[in-house]
Amino acid sequence: MTAAEIRTLILAALALGVAALLPLTGSGYWLGLGLNIAMFTVLATSWALFSGPTHYISLATAAFFGLGTYTVGLGFETLPYWSLVALAGILGAVLAALVGLATLRLSGVYFVIFTLGLAELVRQVITWAQNMSGQKGLYVLTDITEDHIYWQLVGLAALVYLVGWLIGRSRLGFALRIIGDDEEVARHSGIDTARAKVLLFMVPGAVAAITGAMLAPRYVYIEPALAFTPMLSFQVVIMALLGGAGRLWGPLVGVIPFAILWETISSTFPNQTMLLLGVSFLVIVYVLPKGFVGLIDTVRRRLSNREGWT
């Protein structure tokens, strides 16, 4: 490990420690916001692990998330909670592998549509199944508090960063960078591109399902429209791209401001969240195509160029 890596590691551990102290403030508002930020950090960072290098835009987050929520909702009375969280992760990875096998050989448009429809498909099927069985939703009654959920999410975030860092140093990560640059070259350099993409897509699938499982106790009452809300998928895409999907810490830079903005807009102008989503997409495409990270890089380069001139 280089000195810079050790410094980053220490800083990350410190940040994590500080983040873990939040529930001690005892403020419900801050905890709620912190919970949202932690949740979206986990989702957006794992999303960017796959979509950053491959440029595939996945809108399946809600599908995986809902899968995790329902795993807990259906099983918490029979199985211990922890095993359900693990089970959710496995189910998420399996679903992601299936989706990946079906679509990742094809072009990006197919993938977007497939993932956009996936959450809707699962939602319709579950709604239908519930109608058949005569119940509308599920009660998840546990003694897990918001503090616990928050700590779990912070722990999961640490895990996601660790996994992301390890992937970045691995052959798989290197293969994905090559695929992102030129898939044809990747294939002719000996990379099984489909396998690499499917393997990596399983990471956000598993993480989103685990996140859903962790949040299930917070909702108390879960129904398809809540667990599979397509809005979640879009929010994750925006936050990750706004921050910058090219770096491991990029999404975090997008998550914090956007989560706060979202909170503010949806509490003051609840009808204008759609407009906010739309404008955010347009900002990403036309103003910040490389996210805040790209902006920071440009500024840094300018500064160092200026130094170079003098």
């Binding site: 052959r171 350099s189 000996g190």
Partner: peptide
């Protein structure tokens, strides 16, 4: 290196 990691 891209050619060295996954090649023959």
């Amino acid at each position: 290196v891209a050619g060295a990691v996954f090649g023959h």
